[in-house]
Amino acid sequence: MRSEVGKINIKVSILSTSSFIICLISGIPLAFHYQSQNPLLSVLNIEVNIAFGGFFRNLHYLSAQLTLLFMTLHLFDSIYKGLFKLKRLLSWGVLVLTYPLLLFITFTGYLLRADEMGDFAGTIAENMFLEIPFIGAYLQALLLAKSQVGLTKVYLWHLILSFLVTLGLFIWHIKPKVIFRWENLFYFLWIIPIGVFWKFPLIPFEGEKARGPWFFIGAQQLLKFLSPSLVFFLLLLPVLLLLSYAFLPKYAKILSFFLITYIIIYSMFSIWFFFD
């Protein structure tokens, strides 16, 4: 078996870990000043009053996007090199499920900004949950409950899941001995200057066209044509595809074909959004 598989790209692995760690650390000063009962004002307070608050918010935002990006690359890399063949069913499954979990954490972070865009995204997600038959209302109450309790639950999940994902990854997946070495220092440091210069402002009002977070733009466009529960299923589809790599390693090529087709179609919808 081992001979068929390649070696993982260590640079991408370290980058995804380092941006994740930067994201965790930059989140700490924000968490001390964020109030989920009073979200928008406390974000503005962080931006304006707190020393380096704006910088940390930028850094947090940026490193979260980078984490998603490198994590995606890392995932593709491991599929391309056939590394799923080395994993047991359970461990591959857990790793794959980390990905939607991270997406959810990023998404809750997006809602926590509490500007108009975050508000829209939250309401849409909530109503999409409600469209799912049988368990929808439970999921909505468990995960978001924005229309009932505001951002309280969203914030709690943001913290709790970040903690759990970190715990899980560092126990079973990331090897601290490989990551925390002086040679790797610049994998961490390069993000910081970008966080100084690249600003991610709050977006109050977009007129007649509001845009969701970039990874959901395709879904937003799809929602114009398809029923919400169908779109929800389509969003889950890649997770199912990724999981099946471990069940059907023989059909990896076909699965990859489907995955690539999915990504192409999804990106096409995302691009269409801007021309519509």
Binding site: E116, D119, F120, T123, I124, E126, N127, M128, E206, G207, E208, K209, A210, G212, Q220, L223, K224, P228, D276
Partner: peptide, 25 residues
């Protein structure tokens, strides 16, 4: 002011005189 589709906040477009939803139009 919640859109009956998925609940975005509706706006008024004075040009066309219609109420429009910013999320999926």
């Amino acid at each position: 002011r919640r859109c009956p589709h998925l609940g975005c906040k509706l706006n008024f477009d004075p040009e066309s005189g219609l109420i429009v939803c910013p999320c999926h139009q």
